[in-house]
Amino acid sequence: MTQTANHAHPTDNEGGKMGMWIFLFTELFLFGGLFLVYAVFRAKYSDDFHKAAYELDALIGTLNTVILLVSSMTVAMSITAIQKGSKKLAIKLLLTTIFLAIVFMVNKYFEWHHKFDIKVYPGSEVLQNLERGELLFFGLYYMMTGLHALHVIIGMILLVICIFKIKSGHIISNRYLLLENSGLYWHLVDLIWIFLFPLLYLLT
């Protein structure tokens, strides 16, 4: 939808960016609801959360954090590249970002796959027999990382669109609102992960 927004008034950059920022705030509120629920249950079942968090693989989590941080950097660099008029470099940097996003998703896949192997998934018998707090922890884990993964996929789609628009000459050195807004979206994906990572993996 941001992309629709951008074309309406290609000249009103200010307005386009403003709309995107407000949209990002609504995204923060969307996740905010989940963080609130997390806070409530963490306070209620702190021991269970403590125990359950040990089950998560902090190594994969750390790896994914680094990957996302680097990808945020490459997307920012691609904006600078486009500003300097270097189309090829911008596309290369965007491809790097998408590659890193794919690595993130593959890691996520292995992480979830492992959980499924040991029968820790919503509705499974193993999970139902755990303590209530642990059950809620895994529920939140799947909901939060799942919703986040969905945002990663949307972000990747936006970046792919940007690549095509750069190729077709719609995004150029003095008109790059779509790329900038997609970049903002990608930073949001990164930002949310920065909060999810310690809350789920590190606070044990």
Binding site: L30, F31, G32, G33, G123, L136, G139, Y142
Partner: peptide, 21 residues
Amino acid sequence: TPIVGITLLMVIAERVLQIGF
């Protein structure tokens, strides 16, 4: 609106995936 959005999603998750929020 985003708050009710996530809340409704949680109820859906509760029905489909038996996450007991």
